[in-house]
Amino acid sequence: MTVTRLEIAGYRSVKRLVLPVHPVTVVVGANGSGKTNLYRALYLLQAAAEGRLARTLAEEGGTPSVVWAGPREHKKPVRMTVGVTLEDELAYELSCGIVPSDPSEPGTLFLLDPEVKEEHLWALSGGRRAVLMERKDRTAFLRDSEGKRVTFPTQLWSAESVLDQLAEPQRFPRLSELQRTLKAWRFYHQFRTDLEAPARQPQVGVRTTALAHDGRDLAAALATIYEIGDRRGLEKALDDAFPGAELQVEAPQGRFSLALRMPGLSRPMAASELSDGTLRYLCLLAALLSPRPPPFVALNEPETSLHPDLLGPLSRLLVEAAKHSQIWVTTHAEPLAEAVSRRTGYEPVRLVKHGGATEVEGPASSEE
């Protein structure tokens, strides 16, 4: 199920933002404009579906650090809200606040945890919303497969989503469908290319249809594309970026390693010898040419370490990958954003800061 709309409120620099989401959405802006905050908001939805919401927010500094820090309307509770519309059929919204402090009650040590205040799942039809799930604090009701209203039988854990706490897919098929969709998304924002990066060293490998978030299983992922994926597509994309290059993957005793043979060199270059940009581009190839493409792929600043000459091949790679997956990209690189826009017809989402708040400029804006 593709994402058609993203809504964020009260999250980091985003006071309120509503965006249409296309088959390829490129978000561009200067440092500090809030690009990564949109990426992280999407990532929070997957974390909620997997039962990692509290941990993910803690790694960002905790809920008190991620809620909107700018001026607020008086007496309004401190909340952060993220919501998506899928296929114009389902809409899901998650709203969290800070763990309350009550002078009359013993304190808690877990002050970084979120307090899930509300969750909603709606079925959309003809401009109307039918409630499939509604949560208020630790209680929730749902509509089962027969349309009957069912109250959640136990008190919900306040730091995690209903999605991770309800395990009856046959009874609540739309809720289960949403969870499966969010869990299938893939996010890439920290490919390791340092000298000690696992991708530079031989690694025990298995058939790998989804590259790890840090690229540690790169050699096995590329070998998997060669064996059961689009080998010709991989070779074409490699030649587009590095004309005349030939990828080599070896696996003695099941330990996978890769090398790149370049024109004019008498021997292949081992992964340990490749530049950061070359290794990162190979990771992008493995991520975007997966034999089992996910419904949604998000890339945060994929142009990092890449030579400007690689932005053209990268734009073509992104558009090709969009035939099988919905693509979300945040980038500093205007040339990359423009190249993708020329090939897809979708205008980049350009972010700016006004009064400390992230806003959208241009025709892509649908802020409310």
Rank of each mutant, 00 (worst) to 15 (best):
E118L: 08
L258R: 05
G32F: 05
H74I: 12
T344M: 05
R40D: 15
L238K: 07
E368I: 02
K117P: 00
S315W: 01
P114C: 06
D113G: 05
F242W: 04
F152T: 00
A58R: 15
A140R: 02
S33M: 08
K117W: 15
V150M: 13
G32A: 12
R135M: 00
A49N: 01
I327H: 06
R231N: 04
R79H: 13
E115C: 08
L112P: 00
E368M: 00
C96W: 03
Y226I: 11
A140V: 11
D164M: 07
A210S: 13
A223Y: 11
S95D: 13
L247P: 05
L282Q: 10
P243T: 05
L311G: 02
A220N: 04
K183Y: 00
T81H: 08
P263R: 02
R255E: 14
E320R: 15
L314E: 01
A357H: 04
L238M: 10
H213M: 06
T56M: 11
P263T: 09
S341Q: 14
S366H: 14
A9N: 00
Q179T: 14
D113C: 02
L318Y: 08
T330S: 14
T4S: 15
L299P: 05
V340L: 06
Q190W: 10
A49Y: 01
Y43V: 03
R200A: 06
G233V: 08
P348N: 12
A30K: 11
S257C: 03
T56V: 04
E89R: 15
E115N: 12
K353H: 06
G29T: 05
F191M: 08
L211M: 04
Y11F: 15
A212K: 12
M80C: 14
Y346L: 01
A286H: 08
T331V: 10
P263E: 03
S161C: 04
P153G: 02
A140Q: 03
L109W: 11
S341E: 13
K148A: 13
L336F: 03
T4N: 06
H354C: 04
P268C: 11
S257T: 14
E115V: 06
S145R: 15
R255T: 10
F256E: 01
